[in-house]
Amino acid sequence: MNSKRITAILAILALLLMCMGGCKKYQPNEVVYVYNWGEYIDEEVNELFEQETGIKVVYKIYDNNESMYAVVKNAPGTYDVVFPSDYMVGRMIAEEMLEPINFDNVPNFQYIMEKFKHMDYDPGNLYSVPYTWGTVGLLYNTSIVTETPTSWNALWSEEYKDQILMYNNSRDTIGIALLKNNCSLNTTSEAELRVATADLIKQKSLLQAYVSDDIFSKMESGSAALCPVYSGDAISMISENPDLAYTVPAEGTNRFVDCICIMKDAPNKEAAEKYINFLCRQDIAERNREFTAYSTPQQQVYDALPDEIRNDPIAYPDDSSISKTEVYTNLPQETLELYNSLWNDLKNS
């Protein structure tokens, strides 16, 4: 009984000491609040940042642009660093939710490839630093789909009934129907969007499900045969199941750029800039590239890659394929509302 009590007291003392050690290390203002996609960083990188700078990283994750937007819109001043995609960067700039970055404090920005600077969503390149990029393509199981699909129409083929998956978000899913019909991904034409939705309604009876993260388990296990997929995820899934293959259909596709930005009411802007600069450092960027499998916008990191990765057409498609891609832009409010109502029609059909 007595020895137990002593152990307990010692344990409490040890805990207190650890707390005090912690308090000494971090001044209250030296915290950076980071909000990123799930599985989108090698978390050891955060520990390295803490060790090197003494700034504590409070790290939270989200699963899509829209839910991130809803959270930061509702609670300004909660986060310093966020990772929106292209069109969401545009929307957040338009709504004055982002803080211009002082690039004097982010010297590693120089390593970003020129073709990823001054993108349409941030023409002056004041608010965003590219983090990863990729394309959307078709992932298919070669033991079921024996011929390489060449068109987005493959997602409408009767023979793969109940084995087709689509994304459970309106922008990507309506986008694929637009691609199939050779329309622009950023179209605001109501007629084109209605035709695309009508096609999706026709497709619905062939689908196994609309998915988000379930896509990994369903494709890796072989319970689904065919789906649209982000290229980085495709690389991860192919490494788990070698039967899977990735192709970009002839009609072209969406190219996305996920960025790092600083929030308007960032509690610690300087720490945020240090953090962004850290992520752009070659060794750190390489760790994250390896962990996420997404393509890097950094010239030095790219140059140092082994040939088989640099020439991997999934991660680094050639310029002629790139020329057939389109980056999402922020849509006008009335088009966003139309998307919402068409999505509702699709789910009610």
């Binding site: 899509n64 829209e66 839910s67 937007y69 809803a70 819109k73 459970n168 978000n169 309106s170 619905k204 689908l207 196994q208 499900a209 609309y210 998915v211 966003l336 919402n340 999505w343 509702n344 789910k347 009610n348």
Partner: peptide, 20 residues
């Protein structure tokens, strides 16, 4: 399979997807 919405999905979408 998220093929049709129930009212809970609509409410969730309004808050987290279309932000209304």
């Amino acid at each position: 399979g998220a093929k049709f919405n129930l009212i809970g999905n609509v409410i969730q979408e309004q808050f987290l997807q279309v932000y209304n």
